[in-house]
Amino acid sequence: MKKLLLPLLMALASLAQAQTATGNFNVAITLTTACTLNTPANGALAYTSFAASESSATPASINVRCTNTLPYTATLDGGATTTSNVYTFTDGTLNLTYRLTLAAAGLTGTGTNVGNGGDQAYTITPSVNTAQSGTCATDTCSSTAAHTLTITY
Rank of each mutant, 00 (worst) to 15 (best):
N63D: 13
L149I: 04
T148P: 06
T101W: 05
N26R: 05
A51V: 04
T108K: 10
S142K: 07
L8D: 09
P71L: 09
G118S: 12
N85E: 14
S143G: 04
L15A: 09
H147W: 05
T130P: 03
A146V: 11
S14F: 08
T140H: 01
C136H: 12
N26V: 02
E54H: 00
T123M: 12
G92E: 15
T73W: 02
N42D: 14
L96I: 06
A137C: 03
S56Q: 14
A145T: 15
A16K: 09
L6N: 05
A13C: 10
L45W: 06
T69I: 06
I62Q: 00
A74W: 14
V86L: 08
G23S: 12
D119T: 00
P71A: 05
L102H: 07
T36N: 14
T32E: 13
A11Y: 12
S53D: 11
N24L: 00
T112F: 04
N116R: 03
T67D: 00
G23R: 12
P59H: 02
G92S: 15
I124K: 08
A103D: 14
A103C: 06
F89Q: 11
T112I: 07
Y47Q: 06
A46E: 14
T93I: 06
T32R: 14
A121E: 13
A80S: 13
A104D: 00
L37P: 01
T108I: 01
Q132S: 01
A57M: 09
I29Q: 08
G118Q: 13
S142V: 00
T144S: 14
D139W: 03
T138C: 05
N38E: 03
P40N: 00
C35E: 15
A18I: 05
C136E: 15
S14H: 06
S14Q: 13
T140R: 07
T69S: 10
G118V: 05
A21V: 08
T90C: 00
G109C: 04
S143F: 05
V114A: 07
T130I: 02
T144V: 08
L96S: 05
L102F: 09
Y153I: 01
A51E: 15
T82L: 08
G78T: 04
G118F: 06
Y122C: 00
G106W: 10
S127Q: 12
T97R: 11
T152V: 03
T83V: 05
I124R: 07
T144W: 04
L9M: 15
S55V: 02
L12Y: 11
G23L: 02
T20Y: 07
T125R: 02
L94Y: 03
G43N: 15
S49G: 13
L76I: 04
L70Q: 10
C66V: 04
T48P: 02
T30H: 11
T123W: 14
G106A: 00
N63I: 00
S127K: 13
I29R: 11
L9N: 10
A121N: 13
A16H: 08
